[in-house]
Computed example of a mutant assay.
Amino acid sequence: MESNFEREDGWPTFTKKGWSAAEYDADAGSADITAEQLGRLLALVDATKAKGLHVTEITRDEFYDPELSEVFVKWVRAFKDGPGLLVLRGFPVRDRPLEDIWRMYWGIGAHFGIGVSQDTHGKLMGTVAVQPGMVGARVYGTSDMAPLHADRIDILALLCINKAKAGGENVFVNALKVWEIIEAERPDVLALLKRGYPAHRNFEEPEGCSPVTPYRVPVFGEVGNLRSCYFGGNAMLVHQESRFAEILKDADREALNFLDSVVNRPELQLHQMLQPGEAVFINNMEMMHSRTAFEDGEGPFDKRLLLRLWLQGRPCRPIPQDMRVIHNPDGNLGIWPKAAVQAA
């Protein structure tokens, strides 16, 4: 039987509804890997090793079993058509070497999208853990609280290998619900947020490009019936004040303050603690995410470690062109590797 991925591909053509924490459908947003499925997935892992493939060389054609095709379709469509979060449980993180877990994780991820670079070094396989002395002081390399934000990619995936001794809880806010609230309570604010604000590219732009977007990056926008939201520096007053205070008007400050007040309403915030063996796939154009501060322990399983993927959807999610903060020379998403950084 030949592989057929037609039903995995494509994005919703309908207007999705937002949800609050109380409205979140946990059944639609989670799935458990059965024993039979796990056996087939690990057989695929072993097959990729036998072929001598590096983890990042594993494609969905290589990670295909006709008996799993309906399972992959179910997971991918639940993610794209459902609440924008999918928690997948059952990775054997205590029973197989980390390389095997990476292979299984990457192979499943290949059905959701294409792995792309997460930093200027061109790293495709990311980790979230305390990394002392990390260049750039990215928050994922610290134990600090991470504020609500969205990454510059279609899909973010996180797989928990170890929990911290204390803390490290994930927090999610559905941005479509934020859109609906602002539209109902302050349509004047919605208009400003749809126009958007410039964003600094954090020196992760391709060579020859401006470190600041030469256009406004919308917080909210739509293509057809598909609504999308991007919550980065374009949506944060502290970012705008520090970089672009001279262009801000009182109405802009009021709009960004109101956005912040809605995002931080407790009833919108869904709290989840990923357990070892659980992965979450996050729709970055529909969700915001954050993490509470944490404390690592001394034991081998008491130091927080997550595996991270940045995935470009198939096809790339249709969003307003100016909602993309970085436009790479090859047209793909992610952070364009820099030669000087790669050689360092």
Rank of each mutant, 00 (worst) to 15 (best):
13 T>Y: 05
19 W>M: 07
23 E>V: 03
26 A>L: 02
26 A>F: 03
29 G>Q: 06
29 G>C: 11
29 G>E: 07
29 G>F: 02
31 A>G: 04
32 D>I: 08
33 I>H: 05
34 T>N: 09
35 A>Y: 04
45 V>E: 05
53 L>P: 01
55 V>F: 01
61 D>H: 14
63 F>Y: 14
66 P>R: 10
67 E>V: 04
67 E>N: 11
72 F>D: 06
74 K>H: 12
77 R>F: 06
78 A>H: 09
80 K>D: 08
82 G>D: 13
88 L>C: 07
89 R>Q: 13
93 V>S: 05
95 D>M: 05
95 D>F: 05
98 L>E: 15
100 D>W: 01
101 I>F: 00
107 G>Q: 01
110 A>L: 02
110 A>I: 01
114 I>L: 13
115 G>T: 01
119 D>A: 10
127 T>F: 02
129 A>S: 12
129 A>H: 09
135 V>M: 10
136 G>F: 07
138 R>T: 08
140 Y>F: 10
149 H>Y: 04
153 I>M: 01
160 C>K: 01
161 I>L: 11
164 A>S: 15
165 K>Y: 13
166 A>T: 14
167 G>R: 06
169 E>Q: 14
170 N>I: 03
171 V>I: 13
176 L>A: 02
188 D>Q: 05
188 D>H: 03
189 V>Q: 03
189 V>I: 14
189 V>S: 01
195 R>D: 10
200 H>Y: 15
206 P>L: 08
213 T>F: 03
214 P>C: 12
215 Y>K: 12
221 G>L: 07
224 G>P: 10
227 R>Q: 13
232 G>F: 06
233 G>I: 01
235 A>N: 04
239 H>P: 00
240 Q>M: 09
247 I>E: 15
251 A>D: 14
254 E>H: 10
256 L>C: 01
257 N>D: 12
257 N>K: 11
258 F>V: 04
259 L>N: 03
268 L>W: 07
269 Q>K: 15
274 L>T: 08
276 P>M: 04
290 S>G: 15
294 F>W: 13
296 D>Y: 05
297 G>Q: 07
298 E>S: 14
299 G>F: 05
300 P>R: 11
309 L>C: 02
311 L>R: 08
313 G>T: 06
321 Q>H: 12
324 R>M: 09
325 V>G: 02
326 I>Q: 07
328 N>H: 09
